[in-house]
């Protein structure tokens, strides 16, 4: 992990991302491998001796302690807390919660609880802050705002954040670096833009955003690849090292398709679904289902021309 970065482990539930977090925090032991932080092996240390703190999924605030004593917990167990400790006040100020210092957790809203959990984890000044699905307990409407706040806080402090989620929008909004996981393995590491536009395999392409996958066989492969598909030969940038003869997929995002053309393909409209800001078209071309956006609905059964932007699409490996 780079110094001071906001890194997100992203993957479907059960892919092992929370387990990685728990191994780093020290609640679970890794069977093999090592965990190094700042050049120091921490894999063998108990949780209390690791320079790492966690924001738990449902925050795990101590229900019997006030907000101030929750935040001061890390100081209290080290025996270095004063009655009105400046560090507690500073941490509460960082998350703008000074006014609620004497409340109990059950008197707080979900968003307030999250801020206290963050303040509590930061008060010991960890080298790395772990966040386990910190937004999953909150209303959708509240999330966007709190995400911006968390991102701003991370920039301001310069502390490295390692964040776990299965929500791709959250991952895109927050992260400097994304680690996409699938069934216990890392499928791809990259910036959100890289991972979205050049997915390393069909799992990553499918998991992040909407994508139509056109299967085919690789004819030529270098930086760019040529794929032979039911829709004809397609040349596009390669998302992963490919070799001729290999089975691969062309990743088509809905926003990369141009319904109505100009373009090489013919497609039949199966359905138009209203999405508020636009319509999502369910298309079929040469027996392959494709999704595209359109400003206006098109009657089901219509035959239309379909264009695409080869430079923005990508050809990538089939996931195992």
């Amino acid at each position: 992990m780079p110094q001071g970065a906001f890194v997100t482990l992203l993957g479907p539930s059960g892919c092992g991302k929370t387990t990685i977090l728990r191994c780093i925090a020290g609640f679970e032991r890794a069977d093999t491998g090592s965990i190094r932080l700042d050049g120091r092996e921490i894999g063998g240390l108990p949780p209390e001796r690791r320079p790492v703190n966690t924001v738990f999924q449902s925050y795990a605030l101590f229900p019997h302690l006030t907000v101030a004593r929750n935040v001061g917990f890390a100081l209290a167990v080290r025996g270095t807390v004063g009655r009105d400790d400046a560090r507690i006040r500073r941490a509460l100020r960082t998350v703008r919660m000074e006014a609620l210092a004497d409340r109990y957790p059950h008197e707080l809203s979900g968003g307030q609880q999250q801020r206290i959990a963050v303040a509590r984890a930061l008060v010991a000044e960890p080298l790395l802050l772990l966040l386990d699905e910190p937004f999953s307990a909150l209303d959708r409407g509240l999330r966007g705002h709190l995400q911006l706040e968390l991102k701003a806080l991370q920039r301001e402090l310069g502390t490295a954040f390692l964040h776990v989620t299965h929500d791709q929008e959250e991952a895109f909004a927050l992260s400097d670096l994304l680690v996409v996981m699938n069934a216990g393995r890392i499928a791809q590491i990259g910036s959100p833009r890289e991972v979205y536009s050049r997915p390393a395999d069909s799992f990553v392409a499918n998991f992040l955003g909407e994508a139509s996958l056109v299967p085919g066989r690789v004819v030529e492969a270098r930086e760019r690849a040529v794929l032979e598909t039911a829709l004809g030969m397609v040349e596009a940038p390669a998302g992963a090292p490919l070799s001729p003869g290999e089975r691969a997929v062309l990743v088509l995002r809905p926003e990369q398709l141009r319904p109505g053309g100009p373009g090489p393909w013919r497609a039949r409209v199966r359905q138009s679904v209203y999405r508020g800001d636009r319509f999502l078209l369910d298309l079929e071309a040469a027996g392959i289902g494709l999704a595209a956006y359109a400003a206006e609905p098109i009657a089901p059964g219509s035959e239309i021309a379909l264009g695409f932007e080869p430079e923005r699409t990508c050809i990538t490996r089939l996931a195992a």
Binding site: G26, P47, E48, T54, F56, A60, F62, H64, F73, V77
Partner: peptide, 24 residues
């Protein structure tokens, strides 16, 4: 998870017991 949180925040097992498990 409250006990884990206490450990995470630097409490040894006994401190986690005294400050979290026992009061609760």
């Amino acid at each position: 998870r409250l006990v884990e949180a206490a450990r995470d925040l630097g409490g040894r097992p006994f401190a986690a017991f005294r400050r979290v498990t026992l009061p609760l």
